[in-house]
């Protein structure tokens, strides 16, 4: 799999590695997918990178590759900003080859990372017709998570036709941030768009939302999909090639 802009892949890894330290990558002719849960089974990430999004892609037989995302992140940190990236696994090999190439082709770096034998659990996530779908700048969402974490461990997300409100309370007191829907969309990237069938009010652990925000550099917009008594789905699109979706179980009344 070759990417002209290897930084896209580095951003994907940075987006996942805090939530899941290691994961099994499923490779097929259609592309690369991954599903992994955090150790406490509170959050899940689902990654799709379709083959057509790569400069070149070939997979002769389906493979499951157990990879340490922490190690891969360290390797990818050595990559130059404009480097291209090629990932390769040879038949019957127990390692993955990560090759980087500088833009003017005067530097070539190769790394081999040992593959791991991982036990992976998968959840069947049905297509869900959410009560509420919010789109907002991902930088704004990151900021809200950061700001709400000052006030408490949990954030209550409430939606109405007018907007969406995030609130948190704790020993210090309480705080809230309300975003109103953008009425005059000039720049789609900066817009707040709320599609609502029913109002929702759900509480989530800020710590996990903040981990999801590590994937924010992938996309200028984030999608939040919510329904009562259902995990939140937080989506960052990966240009034309796929997406990273995070699922987070809500906090419920004791």
């Amino acid at each position: 799999a070759r990417l002209l802009h290897g930084s896209i892949f580095a951003k994907v890894i940075e987006g996942l590695r805090e939530l899941v330290n290691e994961a099994t990558w499923e490779c097929s002719g259609n592309g690369i997918t991954l599903q992994a849960m955090d150790s406490s089974h509170v959050a899940l990430v689902s990654l799709v990178m379709r083959s057509e999004g790569f400069e070149s892609y070939r997979c002769d037989r389906n493979m499951s590759l157990g990879i340490s995302l922490v190690s891969m992140s360290k390797v990818l940190k050595t990559m130059g900003k404009d480097d291209s990236l090629t990932i390769r696994v040879n038949d019957d090999s127990d390692s993955i080859i990560i090759a980087m190439e500088s833009q003017n082709q005067d530097k070539f770096a190769d790394y081999e990372l040992r593959l791991m034998d991982l036990d992976s659990e998968h959840l069947g996530i049905p297509d869900t017709d959410y009560s509420c779908a919010i789109k907002m700048p991902s930088s704004e969402f990151s900021r809200i998570c950061r700001d709400m974490s000052i006030m408490g461990d949990s954030v209550l997300i409430c939606t109405t036709k007018e907007g969406v409100k995030f609130s948190a309370k704790g020993d210090l007191g309480q705080g809230s941030i309300r975003l109103v829907q953008t009425t005059n969309i000039e720049k789609e990237e900066e817009a707040v768009i709320i599609e609502m069938k029913e109002a929702v009010a759900l509480t989530f652990a800020v710590r996990y939302l903040s981990m999801f925000c590590k994937a924010a550099p992938l996309s200028p917009q984030v999608g939040l999909s919510l329904s009562e008594d259902t995990p939140l789905m937080c989506e960052f699109k990966i240009a034309e090639m796929g997406h990273v979706r995070f699922y987070l179980a809500p906090k419920i009344e004791d």
């Binding site: 089974h41 509170v42 959050a43 959840l123 259902t230 004791d254």
Partner: peptide
């Protein structure tokens, strides 16, 4: 007070 639920409450293991 609220408690943290887990994903396995909502989705089936496959």
């Amino acid at each position: 007070s609220s408690i943290q639920s887990t994903l396995v409450v909502y989705y089936e293991k496959i």
